[in-house]
Amino acid sequence: MSDPKDQMTRVFQSWTDGQRKLFETQMKAFDAFTKVAGQKAGAGDDGGAGGFPMPDLSAMPDLSSLSAQSAEMIEKASGDFFERWKAFAGHWNADAGPDDVARLTLNKFLDPSAWFNVEGDELNATLRRLVEGGDFGDGWLRELKFLRTSKEWMTLRERSRAYRQVMSLAWMRAFRRFMAELAPGADGKPKAENWNQALDLWLDISNKELIKTQRTEDYLNAQRELIRAGVDYRLHERELIEDFSELHSIPTRTEVDELHATVTELRREVRALKRQLAEPAKTRAKPPAKPKARRARTASRSKGAKS
């Protein structure tokens, strides 16, 4: 079980980090105030949509021609989008204002790496932690190096890449929509007039895009394959560990599992006997049916599974 104390420590750590950033932000805000205070109120406007530096939407790649299968096109399109994003974020970074918390947060959430990396997905980040775990000491390094050139490791990397492509497309769709909605509408009014509104807009768009993407066949396939690759890697790792354990007369996972299966079965029998003893004599003739024993099994994949 996850250790609640660790989790709480992380919460407090996040909180403390947030506090530190807040105070750093305040320093910028005070600077901004000083700058603004030095100008005449109402003397100027930067002319953008509510003060935002707007990117050139026409130069963005067309997403409709991309598919999850055309890896090269996606990578090229991703690169183009990244450049647009960097330019856009650059403008923002040059700005500073009292609502800097929203600006900085929006900047962070807009960062495509939060979506593209396998670690950006909660489940896959968890799987990766569980699968890879910590490395052993020196004695294990040789085997570990071998493991990380194995077919399972290569497959895991490949599936991670496929997953990243699906998420790249999702981020590009969200970012394009965000840019389009930031632009002033027919009435000349932009949807967001300050950083807080821009942040809310991005969160709303990205939430809808992520939820929609999670239900697409491309996403579900990519994630299932990634989980399979992670599990295969973990089981392959276990085989190596068991070989090492057997060589050094250390109990293997399989042996311990067999022991646990036996103890579980014995406990079942004890519970059934206790119940029989406690029940009135008239019902003793019909003891409860024993649950089907589920024993340790090998790690081989059965035929007919989805692939």
């Binding site: 599990v231 295969d232 973990r234 276990r238 790690a299 994949r301 599974a305």
Partner: peptide, 15 residues
């Protein structure tokens, strides 16, 4: 979205 065998292997891998 998972095949039954995926569930079995997930449990096999993590217990």
């Amino acid at each position: 979205n998972m095949a039954p065998d995926d569930v079995d292997r997930l449990i096999e891998a993590f217990g």
